[in-house]
C-alpha cells in the first residue's frame, strides 16, 4: 500500500500528559494501523529531533499545510504558545481537541480565567479559536473529551478522517459514535440500577453506584462500557462511580456522593421525570428479583 499518509502534528499546552499516555495504551492493532497510516510530523514524546522546537517554527515560517492538528492540554491566553496554536489550527485540514483540558480547559481553567480550551471555556463556547471557527476544510474543532480520552475514540476518529468518512458530531463537537452512548450503557451493574438496588458499600461486585456513591453514568456521554479501558475494564466494572470526566462541568463538587432532595436523587438521568421516577421506584422496589438482593456468588433460590 503506497497511499499517501495523513500528516499529523500533536502539541501540548497545560497538561498532565494523560492523553498521550492514554493514546500509548491503545490496543496493538489500532496502534499499528495508526502508525501505518499517519505520518507524525511532531509529537513531544515520539519525536526524534535534537531541536524539537525547530519543527514547529519551520511549519509556522513556511506555512506548511497540516492534515490533522491535535492539541492536548489547555491554553493560557497569556502564553506565546497560544498564538502558535492558533496559527497551526489555521494551517490544518482538521483540528482535534484531545481530552478535557484541550476541549474546555478542565482542571487548569478552574481558578484561572485566562485558561481556555480550543473552542470552549468550561461550558461557554468561544475558547482560543472563537465560537465560529472552522478549519480550512470547513470543519469545526472535533472535540474528543475525557480526562483522559479513550485511545480508541481518538485513533478511530483520525482513521475515519484518513479514509474520508468524516465523523458526525454532537452539539459539543464530539463524535456521536462515541458520545451518544452514556457511560451507563453496557455497565455490568445495569440490573441493579433498573431495580433500584443501591451499592451500600464500596468494594463489592453488587449494587448500583448511582444511588449513594455519585455515579454520573446515566448523565455522561461516553462509551466507556462499550469500548473498555485498556481493552479490559472500566470505572464501574471496578467499583468506582463514573465521575463524568467527558462532560464540560468536570470536575464537579462532591464526586463520591449522590445528592438527594426529599429522598429522590437531585439529578435524574436526561428525560426521566420526577413523577415517573417516584412512581416507577415504588413498583421496582416491591418486585426486585431476589437474585439482586443477594451476593452475586451466593446461589439464588
Amino acid at each position: 500500500m503506497s497511499a499517501r499518509k495523513q500528516t499529523l502534528v500533536w502539541l501540548q499546552g497545560l497538561t498532565c500528559c494523560g492523553n498521550t499516555q492514554s493514546f500509548l495504551c491503545a490496543e496493538d492493532h489500532l496502534m499499528d494501523e495508526f502508525l501505518d497510516k499517519v505520518e507524525i510530523l511532531y509529537h513531544p514524546l515520539l519525536n526524534d529531533e535534537e531541536d524539537p522546537e525547530y519543527i514547529i517554527s519551520d511549519i509556522l515560517k513556511t506555512n506548511k499545510k497540516i492534515g490533522v492538528f491535535v492539541l492536548e492540554g489547555a491554553v493560557n491566553l497569556n502564553d506565546k504558545l497560544a498564538d502558535d496554536i492558533k496559527k497551526l489550527c489555521i494551517l490544518s485540514d482538521y483540528v482535534i481537541a484531545l481530552g478535557n483540558c484541550a476541549v474546555h480547559g478542565n482542571i487548569p481553567a478552574l481558578k484561572d480565567t485566562n485558561v481556555v480550551g480550543l473552542q470552549y471555556r468550561r461550558t461557554t463556547k468561544g475558547g482560543l479559536l472563537g465560537a465560529d471557527f472552522k478549519t480550512r476544510s470547513g470543519y469545526p474543532v472535533i472535540n474528543i473529551s475525557g480526562c483522559p480520552a479513550h485511545p480508541e475514540w481518538f485513533i478511530s476518529t483520525v482513521l475515519s478522517i484518513v479514509s474520508g468518512k468524516l465523523p458526525a458530531l454532537d452539539k459539543f463537537g464530539r463524535p456521536k459514535e462515541f458520545y451518544a452512548y452514556s457511560s451507563h450503557d453496557g455497565c455490568i451493574r445495569n440490573q441493579y440500577y433498573e431495580w433500584r438496588v443501591e451499592a451500600e458499600v464500596l468494594g463489592r461486585k453488587e449494587g448500583c453506584l448511582f444511588y449513594r456513591f455519585g455515579c454520573r453514568g446515566p448523565m455522561t456521554g461516553a462509551s466507556c462500557n462499550r469500548k473498555l479501558w485498556n481493552g479490559i475494564s472500566s470505572k464501574q466494572r471496578s467499583g468506582q462511580p463514573c465521575f463524568g470526566c467527558t462532560e464540560f462541568d468536570f470536575p464537579r463538587e462532591n464526586m463520591w456522593r449522590t445528592k438527594y432532595n426529599m429522598g429522590v436523587p437531585a439529578e435524574l438521568p436526561p428525560g426521566v421525570s420526577l413523577r415517573g421516577y417516584i412512581m416507577a421506584s415504588g413498583i421496582l422496589k416491591t418486585f426486585t428479583p431476589n437474585r439482586l438482593k443477594k451476593r452475586l456468588f451466593d446461589e439464588a433460590e
Binding site: L24, P148, L202, G203, R204, N230, S238, Q240, F243
Partner: peptide, 29 residues
C-alpha cells in the same frame, strides 16, 4: 509496557486516571 497497564486496569478499572484506592481500602472486588 501495556502488559503492565492492562494488568493495572484489570484491578483498578483503567489507566491512566482511576480512583480505585479510597480511604478504607480499594473499590474493586
Amino acid at each position: 509496557s501495556n502488559y503492565a497497564t492492562k494488568a493495572l486496569a484489570t484491578l483498578a478499572g483503567q489507566w491512566p486516571h482511576n480512583s480505585y484506592i479510597v480511604p478504607g481500602g480499594v473499590t474493586s472486588d
